[in-house]
Design a protein around this nucleic acid. Structure first.
Lengths: 192, 192
DNA sequence: CGGATTTCTTCACTTAAGTGAACGAGTTAT
DNA sequence: ATAACTCGTTCACTTAAGTGAAGAAATCCG
């Protein structure tokens, strides 16, 4: 399990044994059961998440309806907006599956960053990567119809369609579950 | 004009006269006429933009149609994706109005950053700010109907609706110009 | 095991966005 | 000055998404 983490990090920076031990000493590995809610609307938190195995979901509660806006799977990091803004959270984060996570507080990251500047570098690279990816995703979303978005998802993250309930996928695609059902039927029809 | 820049920077870090002069020595101030295209699809570029006055537009050309996905106005920065990826650009950037810009290359930024670490700090803060804002914008877009998106825009960036042509606004909102016209008529109807 | 709940699909109907065409107003260019 | 274009709006029609209800299948839980 720790190997998964260190393999990932090694893509960005090379760690000494000292550095690896410093990370392990933080005791950041956590197993979380499917359905667990990690963060609730209105709650304050300093926790950042990194998914080693499993899937997290971010959703808003609007007019009594869950609006899912993002999924986080293996090797994806999630820094809730409320951690940065220091305000109560606008949204929920929960586990779609049994999940193995790293949970780190801002304090812990600051400590590691000051001890090992290498880390700061990796965080900046990761943050830039994420910003770039985010922009492309947003552009793609804006320039596509729901049907195209579904087909794109089928291309880019086919696993999501298998592992996530349809009604959560639907709001992720910006539509209602019924529309997703219909849309899928329409696609099958075309490829009859 | 330079004051605008230094006032902005002073919100994040405090500059010495030496540092200010180093920036001015780079000769990064540019005036660009309305309609000018700064970046074209397929083109490679190392230029980053920062708008001092005016408005830039980012758009894709899809099936012969312009799809506008972002506007950049006063005090907003734009690092094209192609600068980071080193690939040809997927999109266009052009001037909606006569615009005063800072144009800096990655090399220039690296030079300033190495001379004045303060800058690196500011860049990281700005990048994190942007990532956060971007995520909130994306969530808002996903969870809203076109009509709600228009009303939100009216709240959050009312200037855009005045200074940008309707058909560019429409694709920014993810709809066709005709639908934007209709939607506005519908809103007026309601508030009769 | 069996009842309850969740999830997904289908249906009929409503509402809103897409499409193609047309028109007037404003702008640009020659 | 006038012809050509761009821009915004409107219209009629098509297509797709929203809504509410209902039911089948799968899953959860006592």
């Amino acid at each position: 399990m720790q190997d998964i983490l260190f393999d990932f990090i090694s893509k960005y920076v090379t760690l000494t044994d000292d550095e690896k031990n410093a990370i392990l000493a933080l005791d950041i590995f956590h197993s979380v059961k499917k359905g667990t809610t990690l963060l609730k609307e209105g709650q304050k938190s300093n926790d950042n998440y990194f998914v080693l195995k499993g899937c997290l979901r971010k959703y808003y509660m609007i007019d009594g309806e869950e609006k899912t806006t993002a999924f986080f799977t293996e090797m994806e990091a999630l820094t809730p907006h409320c951690v940065m803004s220091k305000n109560p959270s606008e949204y929920y984060i929960s586990c779609v599956e049994d999940t193995i996570l790293l949970i780190s507080t801002s304090d812990m990251e600051a400590e590691i960053n000051s001890k090992f500047p290498k880390f700061e570098l990796m965080c900046r690279i990761l943050s830039e990567e994420r910003l770039g990816k985010q922009q492309i995703d947003f552009d793609e979303f804006k320039t596509s119809s729901p049907e195209q978005r579904y087909l794109n998802l089928l291309e880019s993250r086919p696993d999501l369609i298998q592992r996530v309930p349809q009604h959560q996928l639907a709001s992720f695609l910006g539509i209602k579950p019924q529309s997703l059902s219909r849309l899928r039927a329409r696609i099958l029809e075309k490829n009859n």
